[in-house]
Write a protein that binds this DNA or RNA. Structure first.
Lengths: 340, 340
DNA sequence: CTGAAAGCGCTTACAG
DNA sequence: CTGAAAGCGCTTACAG
């Protein structure tokens, strides 16, 4: 009851070595999965580890081998927006799934679209993490764009301003996907198709607008009905109002995210339009927002969870010193529900 | 161009000491803000630090003083639910605000309501973090409930199963707040007031239901119209349908979260009820969901951002070895908008 | 296959 | 107020 006061500290490599009757080097080898260990020794050491419930000290390990075993999850987005979009939920979910089997832990760096704080910069540059995962990226942020020169970095979505450097990222073919979504509307016989695009300083905002234009031009339709939101529901509503004012006769709208589509749907109903009768709506993402709103959205589905997981896997490969394919473009598909 | 190949490593304390012409001990003292340093030496060392752009190595520091300078942000919630609720966005926003001025970094531990993974347990127990912040807590999770015995922990919301241990948490008086929200409805002359409560395995789910009951009983109204959701929008819709089926004549509903209230509102409209004409709705949180939905919600407002910040501040005090008040109950107030 | 030794970059008593 | 020295718990060549 009163004797174990001095034994409160967690066991060290040294103690495991003593218990197993071998040197610290040997214990270190088995802990790190080296093959150059005899079976008997392996057994003895493993037993000692279990016995003592030995857990390697991260700090000591990091100091010795210059690896932090930590990965920064960088979120260059307003906290509120980040948490408000179920698309990010899926991405993060995938990332944690991908990281889980590894020994790495995730460190959270909430930044603003304009750029990270000085603390974050110091942290990222101070060899506190072995790599970084950047979900979403705004063109204004030059720091993140160049972070890859210092650290292995994988982006969620093609980063802007490549500066010739190869960047690692997983994405979908946003233009082609948007083209597909728009073509679906065209095939339904819609004549006046508007589009609500995402943030103009993000590739996903730009490329999806381009895809819509491409499909429209190919079909010989006009491309004047375009409004740029910021991927939020409120911006979707705002854009929808604007488009409706400009063209009361529009009969369809291709929206660059489900969340914005939900905002658009609310406005359409408010204005007495039936969906998809009067106006057909196609969203993008196929996130939980597609099925959680007033009407089940027909949408361009991207495999968000898998994309997050792919980001983690790619970074892990980089961290292992491997040379993974820097660009992973994942497939999209139309998911037809009630809105179009 | 080819000479600085060998100088790629970040500067060490040693180098700063050499540059300033003092010992490492002295540099360490100024880095750590010790007062026992002469002005001249302070100036010289500071200059050397700036000159070399010295950033202390975290691993070395941690190893030497047994502090990780990391705080675990533990999220015992399905990723999707966590990201789907703007309430959490505010809490996390507040936490990052509170942590920002400190030298601590946030480590993300996504767990399930049932309990954390083995990796997370090892991480939390392996002295990899100096403290933990637990946002939301389910009764099924005994591990987190007892984590406080090993580590300084601050909970967001009163944890269940105290086991006599004092726990640190910041919360609102959920019962009183719910009572206030319900009383508002009673004062409006509503005669048949239902309630959609939160998860029954969480204090916020239980206490808000109790507050509703208390107000109803005091007003001599029946307390039979209660349904338990899980704080999600979908569950709010489900509960609303159930309550409407049971009591088509209900004329008001007190809902334990804005997100669930939005789900309820959608169902009410779907069933042709006007709001607040036929049915008045009062939500809870005053999160962005209160103003982002179809109708602007009248709601019980809790200072979520400040609560997150208070959690961080409390933990930081604990980490400094101080003895903060273990319970911080923050004020709530009615915010009247369009739904009641 | 295994061990002795040096070293990773700090902090912390201990002297002075 | 300042410095020399030991130590934090690992890993990593280097021998053997």
């Amino acid at each position: 009851m009163s004797t174990d006061q001095s034994r409160r500290l967690p066991p060290t490599l040294e103690e495991v070595a003593a218990a197993a009757g071998v040197s610290r080097s040997t214990v270190s080898r088995v802990v790190n999965g080296s093959t150059r260990v005899s079976p008997e020794v392996l057994t003895a050491v493993t037993a000692a580890i279990d016995e003592l419930k030995y857990i390697p000290n991260r700090a000591a390990r990091s100091l010795a081998n210059r690896q932090s075993m930590a990965i920064a999850l960088v979120v260059p987005e307003e906290t509120m927006r980040f948490f408000g979009d179920p698309y990010f939920a899926s991405i993060v979910h995938g990332i944690t799934k991908g990281i889980e089997p590894s020994d790495y832990v995730l460190t959270l760096q909430l930044a603003s679209p304009a750029g990270p704080s000085e603390k974050t910069v110091r942290y990222l540059l101070g060899s506190n993490v072995d790599g970084a995962l950047v979900v979403s990226h705004h063109s204004g942020d030059r720091f993140l764009a160049s972070l890859g020169q210092t650290l292995p970095v994988v982006f969620g979505g093609r980063p802007l301003r490549l500066d010739g450097q190869t960047s690692y990222f997983v994405d979908v073919d946003n233009a082609a996907a948007a083209e597909m979504g728009t073509q679906y509307l065209i095939d339904q016989g819609r004549q006046r198709i508007a589009s609500i695009a995402g943030a103009a300083d993000m590739p996903a905002g730009i490329d999806r607008a381009d895809g819509w234009k491409r499909a429209m031009l190919a079909a010989g339709q006009r491309t004047d009905l375009l409004a740029h939101g910021d991927f939020s529901m409120a911006s979707g509503a705002r854009c929808m109002r604007e488009l409706l004012d400009r063209a009361p006769d529009l009969d369809a709208v291709f929206v660059a995210s489900d969340l914005m589509a939900n905002g658009a749907v609310a406005v359409l109903r408010e204005r007495g339009r039936t969906i998809p009768g009067d106006v057909a709506v196609v969203g993008f993402d196929d996130s939980s927002a597609a099925t959680g709103g007033e009407v089940e959205l027909t949408t361009v589905s991207q495999p968000s969870v898998e994309m997050g997981e792919a980001m983690a896997v790619m970074l892990l490969a980089l961290l292992r010193g491997e040379d993974p394919e820097p660009v992973n473009i994942m497939p999209t598909r139309m998911v037809v529900r009630d809105s179009a």
